[in-house]
Write a protein that binds this DNA or RNA. Structure first.
Lengths: 238, 238
DNA sequence: CGCTATTTTGAGATGGCTCAAGCTATGTGG
DNA sequence: CCACATAGCTTGAGCCATCTCAAAATAGCG
């Protein structure tokens, strides 16, 4: 039985998967969970392992990536506190389709399949929540798929930075800091290009004063300019 | 109240979304559905329209595609009888993220959101089924995303043909016919390339006796050879 | 302070795209 | 039933965005 801070309990109550469930019930749910902590760089699970647990991230950021047979990687998504990892485990007796790596120190709760199934039976809302989560991710992935199929590298990277800023942006005096330790390689895997091309693009944008690019640290200075490269994504940034 | 053939009712009972539900209940569900027929080339709904209905395909094949702002298309997926189209409509008051076009004469049932929500309340199994459907599609899309990001065109097209054969293949004396009227353009949109490149690839493979490529009609003669171009996908073909 | 991971930069190669033009089924209307 | 229109397909030639590979510069870490 894990011991959670007040903050972590707050995260859980607002988590995408437990949203809308009676807070008292949430407390009892937690009794069945297992706590896991990982250091930066550790993996929560590996692509190909038997998918036996579903994780809810309490703290930190996780990247989900896939490799092909030649060892080339793609970065499928980045997850933050309150998000669910490995929805598969609940439904199919199968293997994890991707590897989950901690971008920073992380904490997570996890449930095994029997627990999860019982939970879902007791709280039908969970299943609705999972639907909503999957739909949202599906749509984002469809968008990225379309981008990858039809857009130039420059635009894809610009879009990726804007999405990252929206999900992980933190206002600072200089601009919007993308609060994730992502290397050029990570960015390349996120957008389907090479680290060399990413490096050149960032340098060029830095030269124009659009952003500040440091080692594993990017700050958007003129998000407007970047959005226009990305081909207009009208919504506001943090 | 639609009038359905026995065959269509069978399709429904086995459909991915109604699987596992009491057949008698299914009958009553149908009472709330609306029937839609479309000719080849018609669209069921357009990207950007208000997403108010969820469709279950009874007959025919539908392609789901997305356009970007410059009018470039990608083909997201192809759906057959028993499959669900536009899961969005159930969960979010939003717009269709893609356009659904009939590849051949089609028939479908549809439900509007209020009906759907009531159904899901009455039959929690539906929501579980939707989860399973979304997960499956998610995984396929992730695979295609990885391919698009890391593989050469040749391999991507080979993979696409094998997937199509697996889902829509029909054994004929000559080989495995991909039983869908897909143009070179469609295949290009499915794999993120141009119709010219697809045409050249198919010609080359035809020259090697791997397949027979006609107008909107492809027959795999030596699926093994194609699988080896695709980099080994071990499972059997129909 | 030295080691290693990360990033930058250059130069050259090329896969696949673009554009243009001709070809061929298919089906349609006279 | 034929001739013509049209959508779909093939082919060639040239180009260029992006990848590759190599090597040096930088930054953080132990």
């Amino acid at each position: 039985m894990p011991k959670l801070s007040q903050r972590e309990i707050e995260v859980l109550k607002k988590s995408t998967i437990l949203k809308g469930i009676d807070p008292n019930a949430v407390a009892s749910i937690l009794g069945e969970a297992q706590w896991t902590g990982t250091a930066k760089g550790d993996t929560l699970f590996q692509q190909g392992e038997a998918a036996i647990r579903l994780f809810i991230l309490l703290q930190g950021k996780i990247k989900l990536s896939q490799v092909n047979s030649e060892g080339n990687q793609v970065l499928l998504r980045i997850l933050g506190p309150g998000e669910v990892i490995a929805g598969v485990s609940a439904f199919e007796n199968t293997v994890y389709p991707a590897t989950a790596t901690a971008l920073e120190k992380c904490a997570a709760l996890s449930f095994d399949r029997p627990h999860l199934l019982r939970l879902m039976e007791r709280h039908p809302q969970i299943s609705l929540n999972v639907n909503r989560i999957l739909l949202g991710r599906m749509q984002e992935l469809q968008d990225r798929f379309r981008e990858l199929a039809t857009e130039r590298v420059e635009k894809r990277v610009a879009c990726a930075l804007i999405r990252l800023a929206r999900a992980n942006g933190r206002k600072t005096p200089e601009g919007i800091l993308i609060d994730l330790p992502l290397s050029r390689q990570d960015l390349a895997e996120l957008t389907g290009t090479t680290l060399y091309t990413v490096s050149r693009l960032l340098k060029a944008w830095e030269g124009k004063g659009i952003l500040k690019s440091e080692r594993k640290r990017i700050t958007l200075i003129q998000p407007r300019e970047l959005a226009s490269v990305a081909g207009e994504m009208p919504q506001a940034l943090p």
